[in-house]
């Protein structure tokens, strides 16, 4: 899986879950950058990403991420 592909897919998922018109995620994007991204919608994002890739994140991973880049690292490691 290419990093770039994952970012494109994540852009779609974020738009869908957070009800955004457009988003341009980068490695350093974090919850502070997107108003709609709060602790609750974070869970929705995780579940949506898990479904999109047919993977399961560990509880530790979910708590540890500081930005989108680290989320992408987790996805690539699966």
């Amino acid at each position: 899986m290419e990093r770039k592909e994952i970012f494109e897919k994540l852009n779609e998922i974020f738009c869908d879950v957070l009800d955004l018109d457009e988003v341009e995620l980068t490695d350093t994007t974090c919850a502070d950058d997107i108003e709609e991204w709060d602790s609750l919608s974070h869970i929705q994002l995780i579940v949506a990403i898990e479904k999109a890739y047919g993977i399961k994140f560990t509880s530790l991973e979910i708590m540890k991420w500081k930005n989108v880049g680290e989320m992408v690292d987790s996805i690539m490691s699966k």
Binding site: S39, L40, H42, I43, Q44, I46, V47, K56, F57, T58, S59, I62, M63
Partner: peptide
């Protein structure tokens, strides 16, 4: 029940 949702939120019902 979804363990990772529970661990990070204290919610015992999965989104599904």
């Amino acid at each position: 029940f979804s363990s990772n949702v529970y661990v990070s939120t204290e919610m015992v019902l999965s989104l599904d």
